[in-house]
């Protein structure tokens, strides 16, 4: 199985390939709000580095969010376009699952709470635990939109130490650092990475998880659209 992963839901933009031997190559950069400019060249490059062409792919994995609205749409549109053009399926994972998978990969054995900065004074977060499930993690609480003050409630759990990771955990580290039983991860676990995405998706596909037709892939926004009417309609909207 050869799998391409597309990551563009937060500040980190990139692509990764999971190849026949199970090796993972990844190519990513900080987006600086240049997600569309960065992503397609990263896809082309990671394929070329692996000596692959798009036609070699069996499926496309994509980060469905939550995260930056415009950023995650660039990723999901790219995944849909590749899958539509190649006639293959898409497998999605949330940004929070991808963050947690990376954290557990580092050897952390207790619970993980992944926190993505939702901007506008909000975060997106979910709690995970290591498990024998495909991909190695189980979701203890579903992705939720919270105010940062609500994070301690999600983070503290009797009898276990919890790792808080993601750009949201870093942004609000002062709120979290003093809490008993909570460890805030550093910047290497700030963003969901395409390499973790393909590894997670590959594990799930090998365990029999289905892919979706590209038309059926739905992003995870976790926030309603801001319905301010844009009379100056040709001006770009502010991102989430």
């Amino acid at each position: 199985m050869i799998l391409l992963g597309i990551e563009s839901a937060t500040d980190l933009v990139g692509a990764a390939v999971f190849d026949k031997e199970g090796a993972v190559n990844e190519c990513s950069a900080l987006g600086r709000r240049r997600h569309a400019e960065t992503l397609a060249p990263a896809v082309a490059q990671v394929l070329a580095l692996g000596g692959l062409v798009p036609g070699d792919l069996d499926a496309v994995a994509v980060d469905l969010g939550p995260g930056l609205f415009t950023g995650l749409r660039v990723g999901v549109a790219t995944a849909k376009g590749l899958a539509q053009g190649l006639g293959i399926g898409v497998i999605g994972a949330t940004s929070l699952e991808i963050l947690a998978a990376r954290a557990l990969d580092t050897g952390w054995t207790d619970d993980v709470v992944a926190v993505v900065d939702g901007r506008r004074g909000e975060v997106f977060a979910a709690r995970f635990r290591r498990s024998p499930d495909p991909g190695g993690l189980v979701e203890l609480s579903p992705p939720a939109r919270l105010r940062p003050e609500e994070l301690p409630g999600l983070l503290t759990s009797e009898g276990t130490t919890t790792l808080a990771c993601g750009d949201g955990a870093l942004r609000y580290r002062d709120l979290l650092a003093g809490i008993d039983g909570v460890v805030v991860a550093g910047s290497t676990l700030a963003a969901p990475a395409p390499g973790s995405l393909v590894a997670l998706a590959a594990a799930r596909l090998s365990a029999g998880a289905p892919t979706l037709a590209p038309g059926l892939v739905v992003p995870c926004y976790l926030r309603e659209a801001d319905a301010r009417i844009n009379w100056l309609r040709r001006e770009g909207p502010a991102d989430a």
Partner: peptide
């Protein structure tokens, strides 16, 4: 362009992906 940034990027990203898929 010109147009709404968030809307333009959906079409642009999809178009690039199709062009890569079809070479």
């Amino acid at each position: 362009g010109p147009g709404l940034m968030g809307s333009l990027l959906v079409g642009l990203s999809h178009a690039k992906a199709l062009s890569m898929a079809w070479a």
